[in-house]
Amino acid sequence: MDYTFQFGPLLNYLPQIVSGLWLTIGLSFVGIFGGIALGIFCAVMSTLSSPIPRLLVRLYVEVVRNTPLLVQIFVIFFGLPNIGIRLSPLTSVFIALVLNNGGYVAEIVRGGIEATHRSQVEAAESLGLSYFQTLRYVILPPALEKVFTPVVSQCVLLMLSTSLVSAIGVEDLTGAAMIASSETFRTMEIYLVVAMVYVVLNFVFRAVLNVAGLMIFTRSRRRLLGRA
């Protein structure tokens, strides 16, 4: 095999790649924080005594977790126009990413809520706290702290999954790489660079989310400072 690497042609596409990188970061943050908010809401709904919200949340979670993200994007972008709902590619991927991440986060947070010891709930009830006050002050804070690590992992996976949005013409990092590859035919060089960018993004997102967790959860911060 005689292959000569030539990274020079990539310089002409640097503005598009940088623009795609920023779009990937923006999509990731919307999907992460929108998905976390939706996931927490759905996890709380799944703990209610009424069977209807529990059934609806269960249905939503099962649909999200048992279908590929790419299919979800296609349903929103290509399927909804058949019933009169037309969305731009960017809006479609925003919705798909939030819904997808929300389904996974909901199941993770639900596990954290169910891991709360019954004695803590009984203590809150003895103090006269309502169910939602118990959730807000007694159940959710420790539950979210327990499951924060798997939530971070899920959010990093979502960031990597944003590469699928290029399938409907959104010029994220992967989309920009596809255009550069088709015009320069330097596929190896372009995707090696893009792969390294994703690796760096992985570590950056994980670090940012972990720092955010230390700022939010005081017990984790105290444990870290105690070790230091």
Score class of each variant (00 low, 15 high):
residue 26 G to S: 13
residue 183 E to Y: 14
residue 27 L to P: 15
residue 26 G to K: 14
residue 107 E to M: 01
residue 109 V to F: 08
residue 169 G to S: 02
residue 57 V to E: 05
residue 161 S to G: 14
residue 125 E to T: 14
residue 29 F to A: 15
residue 208 V to N: 03
residue 211 V to P: 01
residue 114 E to S: 14
residue 63 V to S: 02
residue 199 V to H: 08
residue 49 S to H: 14
residue 17 I to L: 15
residue 207 A to N: 03
residue 41 F to C: 08
residue 21 L to P: 05
residue 56 L to G: 06
residue 224 L to H: 01
residue 137 Y to L: 01
residue 47 T to N: 12
residue 223 R to W: 00
residue 180 A to K: 09
residue 64 V to S: 10
residue 55 L to N: 02
residue 11 L to F: 06
residue 83 I to H: 06
residue 59 L to F: 12
residue 202 N to S: 12
residue 56 L to F: 13
residue 75 V to S: 07
residue 57 V to F: 12
residue 38 L to P: 12
residue 182 S to Y: 03
residue 138 V to T: 07
residue 199 V to P: 05
residue 57 V to S: 06
residue 34 G to Y: 01
residue 27 L to M: 15
residue 68 P to W: 09
residue 10 L to E: 05
residue 174 T to F: 12
residue 109 V to L: 06
residue 11 L to A: 11
residue 85 I to A: 12
residue 228 A to V: 04
residue 77 F to P: 13
residue 133 Q to E: 14
residue 128 G to V: 10
residue 61 V to C: 11
residue 116 T to R: 07
residue 33 F to L: 09
residue 200 V to T: 10
residue 154 Q to H: 04
residue 49 S to Y: 13
residue 51 P to Y: 15
residue 155 C to G: 00
residue 100 N to S: 07
residue 169 G to Y: 03
residue 223 R to I: 01
residue 129 L to K: 08
residue 145 E to V: 00
residue 107 E to L: 03
residue 198 Y to L: 12
residue 195 A to L: 12
residue 114 E to C: 11
residue 113 I to L: 15
residue 13 Y to V: 06
residue 191 Y to I: 06
residue 211 V to K: 10
residue 165 V to S: 12
residue 182 S to D: 05
residue 210 N to M: 00
residue 57 V to Y: 07
residue 82 N to W: 10
residue 139 I to A: 03
residue 64 V to K: 08
residue 219 R to W: 00
residue 106 A to E: 05
residue 148 F to P: 00
residue 189 E to L: 10
residue 120 Q to W: 02
residue 59 L to W: 13
residue 225 L to V: 00
residue 183 E to S: 09
residue 145 E to N: 00
residue 26 G to Y: 07
residue 1 M to V: 09
residue 156 V to K: 07
residue 8 G to S: 11
residue 82 N to M: 10
residue 47 T to P: 06
residue 41 F to H: 07
residue 115 A to G: 08
residue 2 D to N: 09
residue 94 F to C: 14
residue 11 L to Y: 08
residue 30 V to G: 05
residue 150 P to D: 02
residue 180 A to V: 10
residue 45 M to I: 02
residue 81 P to K: 04
residue 139 I to N: 03
residue 65 R to C: 06
residue 75 V to P: 12
residue 148 F to S: 00
residue 9 P to L: 04
residue 82 N to R: 08
residue 33 F to A: 10
residue 75 V to G: 12
residue 150 P to T: 01
residue 187 T to G: 02
residue 203 F to E: 11
residue 213 G to E: 02
residue 72 Q to G: 11
residue 197 V to P: 09
residue 81 P to H: 03
residue 207 A to K: 01
residue 147 V to A: 03
residue 136 R to N: 03
residue 218 T to F: 00
residue 88 S to C: 10
residue 96 A to G: 10
residue 160 L to C: 02
residue 157 L to A: 13
residue 190 I to R: 04
residue 27 L to C: 15
residue 214 L to F: 01
residue 119 S to Y: 07
residue 179 I to H: 14
residue 207 A to C: 01
residue 48 L to C: 11
residue 60 Y to R: 13
